[in-house]
Design a binder for these strands. Structure first.
Lengths: 221, 221
DNA sequence: TTTGATACTTACCGGTGGGTAAGATATCAG
DNA sequence: CTGATATCTTACCCACCGGTAAGTATCAAA
């Protein structure tokens, strides 16, 4: 019996339903990429878990990289979605950063989200890598803009924005490295705790820890 | 002309000097593992950059994993070294955490240090993986002990130690993902900024942000 | 200069993995 | 019911990679 019974079931009969089958491939592929890494996951592995044979996969995707790229896109989509909501609905800068931390932490516990930060971009060809890097740069810019907004409206203490973004993003991105779906910490617990742990370091207080501001080029990741 | 001219020079003549040659192999291997990932680096790649042939490598290492494991060990050694110094020489808990952040950040800009956190443990066999995980657990325990010490001596605000350690370690570990030796930020700048950015979130202040304390099992990574 | 060990090369093996060619079989529209 | 099409399988190719066998060149000591 395969790990992902529901996804395998999509291929149980030959009824024509390419959409759900494609989705099933993506789900189990993402799962395997996280379990064994992209490089060590063979197309055979994916097929086997779906109870089909390798060539069948090529009816739904052009090649292995195509599958990976689609995982990336889905993950980035998740992030962008929440990002837009935050930008639209939240209050001051600090609150936006806090909301960002919470939402982003949640995404880092979803398989497609985890893929985005855990799978090495080097596994992609140049064109696809460029697309993914553009996505990530966008996320980084959004986080920095929230921090900047907080500094401008006084809710965030002046700081080196680049380093602040690096450290927040780093703490969050790393979640996808240690998080286990069946572990002791639930996504919501993680998100809440991180939001509460990381924001005080930014918040404007009496004792404003002034930081030297040296900022040049370079984006995270 | 190979990227790492000095390492290639170690193999320029056949003078018998196994120690420096072994070191040269490790250096260029680590370099390549970071450039292309362990999986995509072939033994041929390593040999080529050293201007020798693949089988020559097997005079200095049993197999590919042996090289990787040695990189891990060197990196972990770097970390442990600084860890011991901090435990011995630094002041209260918060100061130890701050020193930890600074030192650890520096290590994350050194190739062997970067290897420790960037190369997937899945590339190792069970035995080697166990060894590496033991190293990492030790580091995690040390960081947590520093935080605990800070809470006990009043320099650190009470918090969920596990989450605090996760987020600090995450921010630091992620450095090895975006740091580039020829980038805009020097290791020292990064280390100083991170130390100043991450510690205020822990420091005991008037406005002690009380966190719920839910802690069970699980270690970072 | 011989001798014996070290250091290295050329040539090769077995296994694996991405991808394809070509055929078999089920599904569905008419 | 039937053809056309989508779906999936068996069998295969090729490139690459880790690792080895076996022989050659180099050096150091006697």
């Amino acid at each position: 019996m395969p790990r992902d019974a529901t996804s395998a079931q999509a291929f149980a009969d030959r009824r024509r339903d390419p959409a759900t089958k494609r989705e099933a491939v993506l789900k189990t592929a993402a799962q395997l990429f996280l379990e064994k890494s992209y490089g060590r996951t063979s197309m055979n592995d994916v097929a086997e878990r779906l109870n089909i044979t390798k060539p069948a996969l090529y009816h739904y995707f052009d090649n292995k990289e195509d599958i990976l790229l689609e995982c990336y896109r889905l993950g980035c989509g998740l992030i962008e979605e929440t990002l837009n909501q935050i930008a639209a609905h939240c209050g001051n800068g600090l609150q936006k950063v806090e909301a960002f931390i919470h939402s982003y932490a949640i995404v880092m516990t979803v398989n497609f989200g985890r893929c985005v930060m855990r799978i090495d971009e080097g596994d992609l060809t140049t064109a696809a890598r460029a697309e993914v890097r553009a996505y990530k740069r966008k996320i980084d810019r959004r986080l920095r803009s929230f921090i900047q907004e907080g500094i401008d409206d006084g809710s965030v203490a002046p700081c080196d924005i680049k380093i602040a973004a690096f450290s927040i993003a780093g703490a969050l991105n790393w979640i996808c490295m240690w998080y286990e779906p069946d572990g002791a910490l639930s996504p919501d617990e993680i998100a809440s705790q991180f939001a509460r742990t990381l924001t005080p370091g930014l918040a404007a207080a009496k004792r404003t820890t002034r930081l030297r501001i040296v900022s040049k080029r370079s984006e995270f990741v």
